[in-house]
Simulated scan of single mutants.
Amino acid sequence: MKLTLIEGAEVFAPHALGPTNIVVAGGQILAMGTNLSLAGQGIEIERINGRDFYAVPGFVDPLAHITGGGGEGGFHTRTPEMTLTDASLAGVTTLVACLGTDATTRTLPDLLAKAHALTYEGLTVHCYTGSYEVPVRTITGSVRDDIMLIDAFIGVGEVAIADHRGSHPSAEELARIAADARVGGMLSGKRGIVFLHIGEAPEQLALLREVITRFPVPATQFYPTHMNRSIELLEHGYDLAHQGMVLDVTASTTPELLAQGELSAAESLHRALAAGLSHKMISFSSDGNASLPDFDETGNLVGLKMGRVQSMHDAFVEAVTQYEIPLSHALHAVSTNAARYLGLSDKGELAVGKSADLVLLERDSLSVNSVWSRGKRLVSDGKAVVKSTFA
């Protein structure tokens, strides 16, 4: 058996533990402490000097388009699929994959196959069944059955509301989707989350509020993303966060979208904390490899760029350095909160018995130096040591 001993890193688990030794073996964190002595016949020990680094949980990205996204500018603007290093070099060790606007040329079987491939290469990848549209596209013919019978599926999404590209579901339809996801999750030990794409339309969260008010579906069954489209939208979600709903903000953005009033993920976290929201109620997602379209007031496409998984780390650094958000609080946003809300109990925290997903960050720049995912070292000295099969 091979043991990895990371010595003397300043650990944020995400709470501060100070200089701590971490022992990794068999894909898990085997031990943590200040005075650990390792010795034994036939045991191979790899010693890592962590004294110049922060040791933090691997980032958990609750929204990534691992097979690429449908380009709103035509077939030639379909975005490419992710590679392993798109995530690993950014410190992301766990992702939840989904389809978006295009569920015709981007399919759930392809999504599932890509999730298996990235998991084989070293990451942990879960999936949402469905896409923007309602009725929901599934593999088995049922949201409930997909969640119950397909291990990778932990919920449904990203179902689009308040968006001209969505199917404009009724409250009854959205409530039924939530009920199916909830029961499928209950019966299979999963969260059965309904991941909601919130668009730019003026109705914003009105449909979500109607469902919560009219039907016996708890607010915590929903996980709304793109909540940083505007200050108004973000602030309209605060009362839902007080009901236990985690609000997700998108780290990938463009100068054009920011100029139109979109907030950066870091600024969104800063504003939410200043308004009295708990640091446990905001998460960051990358929207990696999605198309990021820019529409004018009449709905015409005027520009399009691609989301990047790297945006998660960029937003984390911005939150700590520009907005002076405590490192522990920022780590909740990029790791712990999504893991908890999605029911990924072995992720988002450095603790004995948890998955050995950890990142060493340079103390001065917070840049990614080393990454382990399920105990497998993917990045060393800022360079990928494991790459995608055809990279």
Rank of each mutant, 00 (worst) to 15 (best):
A338W: 00
V249F: 00
S291P: 10
Q310A: 14
E256K: 07
D346H: 15
L304I: 15
S311M: 12
K347A: 05
S278V: 07
L263V: 09
E262N: 14
E349M: 15
L273C: 07
M306P: 02
K280N: 15
H313E: 01
A272K: 11
A356I: 05
G343E: 02
F295N: 01
Y323S: 06
A333W: 01
L292Q: 07
D357I: 10
L304V: 15
D296F: 04
A339V: 12
A315G: 05
A356R: 00
S283Q: 07
L327Y: 11
H270N: 13
S335Y: 07
K280Q: 15
L358R: 02
H332Q: 15
A315V: 08
H332G: 14
S283H: 01
G299K: 04
L257A: 13
D346N: 14
L360T: 08
G353Y: 03
L361G: 12
K280H: 15
A319D: 09
G343F: 03
L331E: 06
S264T: 15
M306Q: 15
N337W: 00
M312G: 00
N337A: 10
E324D: 13
N289Y: 00
D296T: 12
T336P: 14
A339L: 08
T250Q: 03
E362S: 11
S283G: 10
E297Q: 14
L273A: 06
G303D: 12
Q260A: 15
V302P: 01
D346W: 09
G353L: 06
T250S: 05
L269A: 03
K305P: 00
D294A: 14
L269D: 02
Y341A: 12
S264I: 08
G307T: 05
F284H: 02
M306S: 12
L247C: 09
S355N: 10
F316L: 10
K347F: 06
Q310F: 08
S268R: 03
G307K: 04
A339Q: 09
L292H: 02
V320R: 01
S311H: 10
Q322A: 15
D346P: 11
A259N: 08
D314F: 04
A290G: 13
R271M: 08
D296A: 08
G276L: 09
D294P: 00
A251D: 00
K347V: 08
A339G: 12
H313T: 05
N337Q: 09
L327V: 05
L361W: 03
A339I: 11
L257K: 12
M245A: 13
E318Y: 02
L361V: 04
L277N: 11
Y323P: 11
L273S: 06
S268T: 09
D248G: 07
L358F: 08
V359R: 09
A272C: 14
A339W: 05
G353T: 07
T298P: 04
S345H: 15
L344G: 09
V302M: 08
S335V: 08
L247Y: 03
V246W: 00
S291M: 06
E262Q: 15
S264G: 13
L292R: 04
A266D: 03
L247T: 10
V334N: 06
R340M: 04
